[in-house]
């Protein structure tokens, strides 16, 4: 099976029902995607599958073989932060930052579909991502900073 992660093709021999999160973290050593719940309830493991935000903890590798998988590690291009990352760096919203990769991936997906979301749209689309440190309002600020004016 071939997994296309961040533009790199990985030939892996795995049972197709293994969760993508586990493969990313343990086989491919892409540990930016985090485990928080394992049931699609927290968003810490969010990656993009062909551009769509997906919870990698409940996504099997079999279902994404051959598709374009983007993780937090794939956002930076040639040492330059993705604009959404740059906005988060500038806003500095996080405390422990464990939720950060999932938040940023969800935000990237949101802004791609809706470059200038209203606050309500942000809340609606980010509601599946938990920040237990409670930095929500500052995360909203960062997303607004990354929005097209």
């Amino acid at each position: 099976m071939v997994l296309n992660v961040n533009g790199v093709k990985h030939e892996v021999s795995l049972e197709p029902d293994v969760e993508l999160l586990s493969v990313l973290r343990n086989e491919l050593e892409l540990t930016g995607s985090k485990y928080g719940c394992g049931e699609g309830a927290c968003g810490a493991c969010t990656v993009l599958i062909n551009g769509t935000p997906s919870r990698s903890c409940i996504t099997t590798v079999g279902s994404v073989a051959g598709k374009e998988i983007t993780t937090i590690e794939g956002l930076e291009k040639n040492g330059t932060l993705h604009p959404v990352q740059a906005a988060f760096l500038e806003t500095d919203p996080f405390q422990c930052s464990y939720c950060a990769p999932g938040m940023i991936m969800s935000a990237v997906a949101l802004l791609k579909n809706n470059p200038a979301p209203t606050e309500d749209a942000i809340i609606k689309s980010m509601d599946g991502n938990i920040c237990r440190c409670g930095t929500y309002l500052n995360i909203i600020k960062a997303i607004k900073l990354a929005s097209k004016p």
Partner: peptide
């Protein structure tokens, strides 16, 4: 901060 928002920090 940068190591966290790029996913590089090793918890």
């Amino acid at each position: 901060g940068q190591s966290f928002i790029t996913g590089k920090h090793q918890y």
